[in-house]
Amino acid sequence: MADNAAIQEAGRKTMLRCENLTRIYSEGPQDITVLENLELEVRAGERVAVVGSSGSGKTTLLNLLGGLDRPSRGRVRVADQDLSVLGEAALGRFRNRHIGFVYQFHHLLAELTAVENAALPLIVRGQSRREAKERARGILAKVGMQARSEHKPGELSGGERQRVAIARALVTDPSVMLMDEPTGNLDQHTAASILALMDELASTTACAFVIVTHDMGLAAHQDRVLRLDAGRLTPA
């Protein structure tokens, strides 16, 4: 995690920027425009919620922001890096270092313990298992999972599994955190605990948060709420 001085310095920086972002899919003879000339800027420590009806393009937007999909036009910049100029291998390395993903379903590996799951991005990067697990334990402690670090996902509650997924996303100290319905699969009490954790992370890390959700309560808790409709973002 960044120290307070680094966070204050980073707070002046734009971590994520979209310029004229457009995504068009071809279905037979027909082109379907999902996103059109979309603009977005998110600064370090800022939390932006994106809401919209099913099929409005929220998942497409998240995939473009994370470099999992390529735009038809326009560009995405993360930490001053234009993703469009990176080849697939370079993009994968950049994602590993700068972009954290948290989904509605935790996608933890059942055969690995919490600490092994959290350490996985660092191991993929080539860091030694000992160093990766040491870093992962520190992050698990910050999300309240230190005592459960040696448990496998099947031995954890839904909220605990989501905390491990958040730790896995944070272990690389990302510039941007992308969250797709992070509380959508949780009961109200557990969702509230994840919300409190997100509040703490926003104040103690130097990354920018983009949260896609149908939950207006979760959205209203963020710094800004944007609505995705007809391929464009507008204040909600």
Rank of each mutant, 00 (worst) to 15 (best):
M1P: 13
N4G: 01
R12F: 03
M15G: 09
R17T: 10
C18I: 04
L21R: 00
Q30A: 06
T33Q: 12
E36M: 05
E36L: 05
L38V: 10
L38Q: 05
V50H: 00
S53L: 13
L61C: 10
L62W: 01
V76W: 11
R77F: 04
R77M: 10
R77S: 02
V78R: 04
D82F: 10
D82H: 06
D82Q: 09
L83Q: 08
V85R: 12
A89Q: 04
A90E: 12
G92Y: 10
F94K: 07
F94R: 06
F94Q: 09
R97A: 10
H98D: 15
H98M: 13
H98F: 14
V102D: 02
Y103V: 00
H107L: 07
L108Q: 06
L112V: 13
T113L: 00
A114N: 07
E116T: 05
P121M: 05
Q127H: 07
E131L: 14
E131Q: 15
E131P: 07
E131F: 08
A132K: 09
G138E: 14
I139K: 09
Q146Y: 14
R148M: 11
S149T: 06
E150G: 02
E150P: 02
E150K: 01
E150R: 05
H151E: 00
P153I: 04
G154A: 08
G154R: 02
G154C: 11
L156V: 15
S157V: 04
G158A: 08
R161K: 15
A165W: 06
I166V: 15
A169G: 07
V171Q: 08
V171E: 11
D173I: 07
S175Y: 10
S175N: 08
D180V: 12
P182T: 05
P182R: 08
G184K: 08
L186S: 01
Q188A: 14
T190V: 13
S193I: 11
S193D: 12
I194D: 04
L197V: 10
E200T: 15
E200A: 14
T204L: 00
A206V: 11
V210M: 06
V210D: 03
I211Y: 03
T213L: 09
H214M: 02
G217W: 12
Q222R: 14
L226V: 01
R227D: 03
A230I: 01
L233W: 02
L233D: 00
